[in-house]
Amino acid sequence: MNVTLHVCITCRAGQTLAEGEAAPGALLHAAIAEAGVPDGVNLVPVECLSACSQGCSVALSAPGRWSYVYGRLSAANAADVIAGSAAYAAAADGIVPWRSRPEIFRKQSLARIPPLSAVPEAAE
């Protein structure tokens, strides 16, 4: 099953950028792309994950699995994001055991979203 790793490329991480300066989110995306993502993980740049007050952010999702949003990241965290996405890809339900998560994924989770199949239908 394919996993999607979204990276917010417009994130400024609270910085004021000079004309033409790359956003920290774009630098994170570039670092991940350069290092390479695991098989079965699709790296997708997005323009906003609405976690602006939380620094650079990424989201992991796949059909039928729990989804996660992580924040307070930088290009220096690219290897941990890749390791975390590999662990997520290996977890059938998206829930990676606590000890198997990179430290940044243990401490910097902003949201955990249930799979669509687990969301009950709205009451009328």
Rank of each mutant, 00 (worst) to 15 (best):
I32S: 00
E103Q: 13
S74H: 04
A92Q: 13
V44I: 15
P120F: 09
A89S: 08
S117V: 15
Y88Q: 04
M1T: 14
V58E: 02
V119T: 12
V119S: 06
S61P: 02
I95W: 12
F105W: 09
I82A: 00
D80P: 00
A79Y: 05
S109E: 10
L60K: 01
P38N: 07
T4Q: 10
A86W: 14
G14S: 01
N77Q: 11
I82W: 00
A76E: 12
I113V: 15
G25H: 03
L28R: 04
A13H: 07
P63K: 11
A51M: 11
S67E: 05
E121S: 14
A75Q: 04
T16G: 09
R72G: 11
L73R: 01
R12P: 01
P24I: 12
P24G: 10
V7Y: 02
R106T: 15
T4Y: 09
Y68C: 03
L5K: 02
A79K: 12
L60E: 01
A22D: 06
L49S: 03
E19C: 03
V37T: 11
N2G: 09
P97I: 03
C56L: 08
A35V: 12
G64S: 05
A86T: 08
G20Y: 02
D80C: 08
S67I: 02
E21D: 00
S109Y: 10
A13K: 10
C8Q: 03
T10N: 14
A90I: 14
A13E: 00
R106Q: 15
A33D: 11
S50E: 12
E47R: 15
L28W: 06
I82F: 05
V37P: 04
R112E: 06
I82D: 00
L49D: 01
P63M: 15
T10Y: 02
S50N: 12
Q15Y: 08
R65D: 10
A62S: 10
S53F: 11
P120N: 08
A13S: 11
T4C: 05
E121F: 15
T16V: 11
T4V: 14
A13D: 01
S109A: 15
A23F: 03
I82N: 00
C8G: 02
T4F: 09
V3W: 00
E47S: 13
N42G: 12
A13Q: 01
A87W: 08
V44G: 07
E124A: 15
P45V: 05
Q54C: 14
S100C: 13
R101V: 06
P97W: 06
C11L: 10
V46S: 11
S50V: 14
C48D: 08
T4I: 15
A51L: 06
V119C: 11
G94L: 01
S61N: 09
V58D: 00
A91W: 05
